[in-house]
């Protein structure tokens, strides 16, 4: 399967999924400085500042000492830079009786995110593959229910899932939460994979069938190797989504398994006594850091992920 033409086809298929975002086209504007350009760049510049301000405020606040915060305002840059708030947020901040900082939540989130991402993508890609290449009677009905379910408010299903988890003895455990994430990630991911697999040339599938490959053979030897881009997109979607989850973490785990977002909220919103704004902001940045890094590193793939998920076929 390593001949160049199939690679090119995979590339073409990848292009087919990608929305038309590939940058400016057409003729160039003639003058660099015109009233029109000033308005456009001015507006975009101002808006960019507005969007960047909260990030700036977070960083600046987290680097100040408490006396400095009480004297100044949220926007004033730090006079004396201190990393003490970061250390404290990571290792010493208290939630209830535990005073080991956000690090516990961080590791919990890692332990939750890694299996959830793997399981949800594995299951959804196989679902999508079955829907795209091995249609059976009734498949479309379940798929429609699945997609419709994506729009139903989670709140309607929260309690029945609690009962199901209790029945199979996973309520409050890590694997229970993994299953919940798999369930709620399924509609969007299945749609993503189904559309991608459908866009692959059918001749490949037929040729493999003629050569005697079965359901799993074709999946592992042809579909997966040819679909790396969509697997990456799905991973980006899932890692950020699961890392940012709050509701499921609160409901389906116990306090010693709380993900980072839940712990962050507990640190910031339930501290007794003096509020330490700098520690709070350091903790907030730490929690936002993983999705932010993924966002800035993945760049266009992230955009593609949300666009593919939203503008559906």
């Amino acid at each position: 399967m390593s001949d160049p033409s199939s690679v090119a086809m995979a590339g073409a298929a990848a292009d087919a999924v990608r929305p038309v975002l590939s940058g400016p086209s057409g003729r160039r504007p003639k003058r660099a400085i015109s009233p029109r350009n000033i308005v456009i760049y001015g507006t975009l510049g101002l808006i960019s500042i507005y969007y960047l301000l909260p990030l700036y405020v977070m960083v600046v606040t987290s680097l100040k000492g408490m006396p400095e915060i009480r004297l100044g305002n949220v926007f004033s840059p730090p006079v004396e830079i201190t990393f003490q708030p970061w250390v404290k947020a990571w290792a010493e901040a208290c939630t209830g009786l535990n005073c080991d900082g956000l690090s516990r939540g961080f590791w919990n989130s890692v332990r939750i995110t890694v299996p959830s991402v793997i399981v949800s993508i594995a299951i959804a890609s196989i679902n999508g593959y079955a829907l795209a290449n091995w249609r059976f009677k009734g498949a479309n009905f379940f798929f429609s229910v699945l997609i419709f379910g994506a729009f139903i408010p989670y709140q309607v299903m929260l309690y029945p899932i609690v009962i199901m988890m209790r029945e199979i003895g996973l309520y409050g455990s890590l694997w229970g939460l993994v299953i919940v994430h798999t369930i709620f990630g399924m509609p969007i991911l299945t749609l993503l994979f189904r559309n991608y697999f459908t866009s692959l040339p059918e001749e490949l599938f037929k040729a493999a069938r003629v050569d005697g490959a079965g359901f799993w053979g074709i999946y592992f030897r042809i579909m997966v190797p040819m679909s790396m881009p969509i697997f990456v997109v799905a991973m980006i979607l899932q890692v950020t989504g699961i890392w940012n989850d709050f509701l499921f973490g609160v409901i389906y785990t116990k306090p010693d398994l709380y993900p980072m977002t839940v712990q962050l909220n507990n640190i910031v919103n339930s501290t007794q006594g003096v509020k330490e704004y700098n520690v709070n902001m350091a903790a907030t940045i730490l929690t936002g850091l993983v999705p932010l890094v993924i966002y800035f590193v993945s760049g266009k793939l992230f955009v593609r992920g949300i666009a593919a998920g939203a503008v559906k076929g």
Partner: peptide, 16 residues
């Protein structure tokens, strides 16, 4: 710049 807040969780957004 305009899209990065979308990568952040609502918890982070709310606290900021």
């Amino acid at each position: 710049i305009i899209l990065y807040p979308f990568a952040l969780s609502f918890i982070v957004t709310g606290l900021v």
